[in-house]
Amino acid sequence: MTDVQTIIAADIGGTHARLGYIHAFPNRDARTDSMIELKAYTKYRCADYAAISDVLNEFVKSQNIDRIDQAAIACAGYFVDEKLKATNLPWTFSLDEVRATLNTKNVFGLNDYEALAYSTTCLAETDIQSLNSQGVSVPGKARFILGPGTGLGASVLISRGQALTTLTTEAGNAGFAPVTQVEREIQTLLAKKFDFVSIEHLLSGPGLVNIYQALAEIMDQKALLERPSMISRAALDGSSPLAQASLDVFCEVLGSVTANLVLTYGAQGGAYLAGGILPKFKDYLVNSKFMDRYLANASMRTYLEKVPVNLIEHGNLGVVGAARWCLRSSEANT
């Protein structure tokens, strides 16, 4: 078909780069969801490559790709004058470098959570685990997506008729607001380590380590575990009460932050939790006090109860979302 567009879509976080090769069938009535076919998908460890060009070249060669009409590069950061500004990525690059690598002029850059926000419009039921069974999405209302990983990503999707637009946020860099006495003590200890204690300093992989180390000091215990995966694993298998306490704090803080962002953005379309680490302990999250903290604002409890809160698997969703964003952007300019 002459209408088929071929797209390289990349979803690049602090730890992994996810790449997809997509056949897309642009549709003027904006029903692009069913018009995207993911032909190939691969996940790479960023630390294994010196530059984004190395990853792109390996993907193109491994998939024998000989035609690229467009490319969408979604990254944990933002672009200024087509140059990536990011704090949690191992690379710096410009979109011109990507154009040269892929030999195509049509290269777009966007935030990785902007891409994930787009993907929430075409989720299958199997992609979603509900954390708030009372919630019902209100059509046309804003929805937001939040994800702890190497950092803390956040974006908002806003509908205007059939048109969609995203609001890229730096919610993870907003100040942390403790609720409990333990959280206040954690904040005090983290303030000795950081000039400014942000939400990301708790809600991320490194943030879980920060919580664990602070609780160890508060409880006068030794912090024996060094990595987020070690802490979450010890919490899940019950081998470390300190790790369990740390994961409990993590889940409770996540509940408060989710509620605050729902209220801030009027996100009656739903709240979506993604990121690289939540799926690893999703059952623990479901059984934690996440929802208690999410509904803790008594004056807004009725409002919050009506908003669906969903846990989604990151997987290839960022790649699909980046491709959808790319299609809509190119259509808007034609």
Rank of each mutant, 00 (worst) to 15 (best):
F93G: 09
N106A: 15
Q134V: 04
P90G: 05
Y78E: 08
N111I: 11
A72L: 12
Q70F: 11
L116R: 03
E114W: 02
P90D: 01
Y118S: 05
S133F: 04
L84K: 12
K83P: 00
N103P: 10
F144S: 02
L131Q: 07
D96M: 10
L89D: 02
Q129L: 11
Q134L: 03
K83C: 07
A124N: 12
Y78L: 14
C75G: 09
Q129F: 03
I73R: 14
A71M: 07
N103Y: 07
V136C: 09
L131S: 05
D112E: 04
T121V: 07
R99V: 06
G77K: 04
A76H: 10
T87M: 06
N111D: 15
Y78P: 06
L84P: 09
A71H: 11
R143L: 00
E114M: 09
I145F: 11
Y118N: 01
N132L: 04
G140M: 07
A72Y: 05
A124V: 00
L110Y: 09
Q134N: 11
Q134E: 03
V107Y: 04
A86S: 11
R99T: 03
K85C: 15
A124E: 09
V80G: 00
A71N: 09
F108L: 15
P139A: 13
K83Y: 10
G149C: 08
A71R: 14
L102N: 12
S130Q: 14
I73G: 07
S94N: 07
Y113L: 13
A76V: 04
F93S: 01
V138R: 05
I128C: 08
E125D: 08
K105C: 13
T87P: 01
N132E: 01
T104Y: 06
A74C: 10
G149T: 00
G77C: 05
P148F: 06
L116I: 13
G140V: 14
G77Y: 02
C122M: 15
N103G: 14
Y78R: 11
K141E: 10
D112I: 04
A100F: 15
Y113F: 15
L102V: 11
L102G: 14
V80M: 09
S119M: 04
L84S: 04
L110F: 14
F79Y: 09
A71W: 05
Y78N: 12
R143H: 01
Y78V: 10
T104V: 15
L95N: 03
T87Q: 10
L110C: 15
V98L: 12
T120D: 02
N103C: 14
F144L: 12
